[in-house]
Amino acid sequence: MSSPVVTLEQPRVSLCGGSALLLEAEGPLALPTQMGIWNLTDEIRAWPGVLDLQPGMNNLLVVLDPLEGDAEAISARILARWAEIPRERALGRLIEVGVVYGGEGGMDLMELCEKVNLSPTEVVALHSAPEYVIFAPGVSPGFGYLFGLDQRLFCPRRKEPVLRPAGGTVMIGGAQCNLGAPRRPGGPVANPTGWYVIGRAQDVPVPFDLAMDPPNRVSLGDRIRFRVERIEA
């Protein structure tokens, strides 16, 4: 039984401390809304008093200069522009990755199956069916948050984060899913997460490379398809 996801009837801007704002868009997660978020991100970047921006799922974090940024005034300006910003944009390239579901690499598959009351075969079929869109950056440089998860797979995050091995993880948390970047040599072997790891992708392309300029090898709007390699018990 999953909790209902917050859905707003009207967009709102809330405070994230004294010097950051969060715009939350109205309505459910949807591609046109997210395209509006991406377009607004590009526009606000040039505003005075704005230091950084981060699109989220149906939302946008705006980081202000703590001395100069006027949170109230910029809130009003964001809402005004949001009402007008175009909600269309081209999508990017398609990336296909093979996934071994369940087993050692997808240690939480069975637990998720119980939570959503489906068999492993059903979960994998539902998960591998859609073409996902990279909607927003994730917790570190990578493939970000993906849009397109079948709502039958929605599953609330864990009450407390747990440690899960890093590298190519295919995860579900709440109404979202994602794909972990390959483990970086010398990088952490595990990360804390409240999400469920249902599988592991074998040959994941490197999504971020500081030797390149710009360093991101994937962009918001790129698409990902999961190919079922096999399901392990």
């Binding site: 999953s2 909790s3 209902p4 996801v5 917050v6 994230c16 401390g17 950051a20 969060l22 939350e24 997660l29 981060q54 699109p55 989220g56 799922m57 149906n58 939302n59 946008l60 974090l61 980081v63 927003a136 994730g138 948050y145 929605f154 609330p156 995050r157 009450k159 407390e160 984060p161 709440g174 109404a175 979202q176 409240g194």
Partner: peptide, 20 residues
């Protein structure tokens, strides 16, 4: 009434409340 949140950007200082 617990509601699932959509992921959003987090700044240092955010006081998150997990279900615990």
């Amino acid at each position: 009434r617990p509601l699932e949140m959509r992921s959003h950007g987090i700044v240092p200082g955010v006081v998150q409340v997990p279900p615990s």
